[in-house]
Amino acid sequence: MGIFISVVFLVSFAMFAGAVQNLLALNKPGMYPPKVLLRKRAGSLAGAGAIFLLIGIIFYSFH
């Protein structure tokens, strides 16, 4: 069970890191990918990261 909780926290951290990377890409000049797509991607990754973090906290509290 401990390995599962660790994996859930690592996935959460990876998704938050991806969201930050997409937000930082908004400041780079260029046309591709569109800024709307980057914002949507960052929001999706941050939301999924929050869900995985919540799941990890729930499992950790019951462990």
Rank of each mutant, 00 (worst) to 15 (best):
V11K: 03
Y60I: 03
A19K: 01
V7I: 13
F52H: 08
L53M: 13
L38K: 12
M1R: 02
F16P: 00
Y32P: 00
G18M: 05
S12V: 06
L45S: 02
I51K: 01
L26C: 00
N27M: 06
V36A: 13
L26S: 05
I57G: 10
P34Y: 02
N27Q: 10
A14Y: 06
G49F: 09
L38R: 10
P34F: 13
G18T: 10
P33N: 09
L26G: 04
N27A: 14
L23M: 15
I51N: 01
L45A: 07
R41Q: 15
L23K: 14
G47S: 11
G18F: 08
N22K: 10
L23V: 06
V20I: 15
I3A: 15
Y60D: 06
M31R: 07
A48E: 03
A48N: 02
F59K: 13
P29I: 02
A14P: 03
G56A: 06
A25P: 00
S44D: 02
S44A: 12
L26F: 03
I58Y: 15
I58F: 15
N27V: 13
V8N: 03
G56V: 09
I58N: 14
A25L: 05
A14M: 09
F9R: 10
P29W: 01
K35C: 08
K28V: 12
V36N: 04
G43K: 05
A50M: 09
F9E: 07
S12H: 03
F52E: 10
I57C: 12
I5G: 04
N22S: 12
L54K: 04
A19E: 02
V8R: 05
N27F: 13
Y32H: 03
P29V: 00
R39Y: 06
F16Y: 11
Q21C: 09
V8F: 06
Y32W: 11
G56P: 04
A50E: 02
K35E: 04
F16Q: 00
V11L: 15
L26D: 01
V8E: 15
M31I: 08
P33Q: 01
L26P: 01
A14Q: 08
V7P: 01
G47Y: 02
L53F: 15
Y60T: 12
V20A: 13
G2N: 09
F16C: 05
A46F: 09
V7W: 03
P34E: 14
V7S: 10
V36H: 03
L26R: 04
N22Q: 14
L53W: 11
H63R: 13
Y60N: 09
S61R: 07
A14F: 04
L26W: 04
K35N: 10
Y60F: 11
A46Q: 02
V36Y: 07
I5T: 01
